[in-house]
Design a protein around this nucleic acid. Structure first.
Lengths: 218, 218
DNA sequence: CATTTTCTGTGATAATTGCAACAAAAGAGA
DNA sequence: TCTCTTTTGTTGCAATTATCACAGAAAATG
């Protein structure tokens, strides 16, 4: 499920034909550029081809809250997001990236010239959505933990389990970004990391972590 | 998108045939019964037919955190959820309900006897997933608000906008459940509601709410 | 390579939030 | 109808968390 793209099991020749059939367009964005704002009701399903971007929303006071990171083969767009009134949503490119836009109507209505790969593409879209659902459910699961320590440990244990063979693991985001992901103050999170280290529950150095007394390695 | 079910645009006769084709089974559950625990890697896509259920997870200390409510036509199952180790996941029926189980493999692999409605069903599944993504994104959006007041207002304004024609709106859940949804202490939430009323920002009585000084009605 | 920017790390203090406990009201069930 | 349970509403107090402020390390940029 991780190596899945919307074109999985679709040959290169078919892909080319599908571009017309689905009304697809590609567009490149420079680092720092705004890929999309979620206010235009322009309904298209967007797929990240290369690069990455971050969706965040800004409230009246200028507070910025991190919503999600978009990586290659992820889907995004208003179809998957109900924006809250009064908030501004910005999807900003974290690095140079290329995005595929698929016309929403071409997806929901059956292809007139019964394109044989239509159903394969929808199938892929469904599975990519399922993957996205997994990561959102995971984050909700973490965000609903009662305090910073539990949020941290929930995330760290999840990350550790992704690479079960090595004692150490290194986060693929900065501690600043981790605080955003956990939706807590960075300084408070640092304090909690310090406490966990003092209590000999974890060892850490920068983005590198290790669980000390882990019953997992028996 | 709200009236959508996995059988949308599929005739009753076709449905019957699809039961075999997709390896579907139906099962009834009494109120209070456990529909599913998310530890068995039994991969099937589940659809709520009638009734409702709540997915929550319990940690080692017995703390219970609310994950999501499942209503008719919603999809659920481990395909959409990465469980965290050490936590127990229980989907409990809130009322008598009936659930449809669809074999996962029948969904991801193309139907051998090229069933004409296969793609229609996947299409519906994709759209139902998109709807689920909307509601999860919404919740994350709310959970990442900085304090109780902002969480409350974000949710209340979202609810108000669902019925834009009436001044008042009534929550379809108890205030106790709302506190769970916002992942805050109920007493603290009540304190904040009281403050919002004293500051003449909202009026409320039980589950009935109204925004007082709303620039929305000009 | 020099400079700017971002990231990591820390502490004091204030603000927010959770907890425990209680009572009245409302609702469910027998 | 009466009882039992859940919900709403309210406190004081303790615990947690955010805010602010600062400094050195690391990384990015030209």
């Amino acid at each position: 499920m991780n190596g899945l793209s919307i074109f999985s099991s679709i040959s290169a020749e078919s892909r080319a034909r599908m571009y017309d059939c689905f009304g697809m367009t590609r567009k490149k964005f420079k680092k720092g550029q705004t890929v999309l704002t979620y206010c235009n009701s322009f309904k298209s399903v967007c797929v990240m081809i290369t690069g990455s971007a971050t969706l965040s929303c800004i409230d009246e006071d200028g507070n910025n809250s991190f919503l999600e990171k978009i990586y290659p083969n992820d889907v995004f767009g208003e179809l998957f997001c109900l924006p809250l009134a009064k908030l501004e949503y910005v999807l900003c490119a974290d690095e140079d990236c290329e995005v595929l836009f698929i016309d929403y109507n071409h997806i929901i209505t059956p292809c007139s010239n019964t394109c044989e790969h239509h159903s394969r593409l929808i199938n892929n879209l469904f599975l990519i959505s399922a993957r996205k659902l997994q990561s959102l459910t995971l984050r909700i699961n973490i965000l609903t933990q009662k305090n910073i320590r539990k949020k941290l440990l929930a995330y760290l244990e999840f990350r550790r389990n992704l690479s079960p063979d090595s004692r150490d693991f290194t986060l693929d985001m900065s501690l600043t970004d981790l605080a955003d992901y956990l939706s807590v103050d960075r300084a408070s999170m640092m304090r909690e990391i310090k406490a966990l280290k003092e209590e000999q529950i974890i060892w850490s150095e920068g983005r590198k972590f290790r669980f000390i007394n882990n019953d997992f390695y028996i």
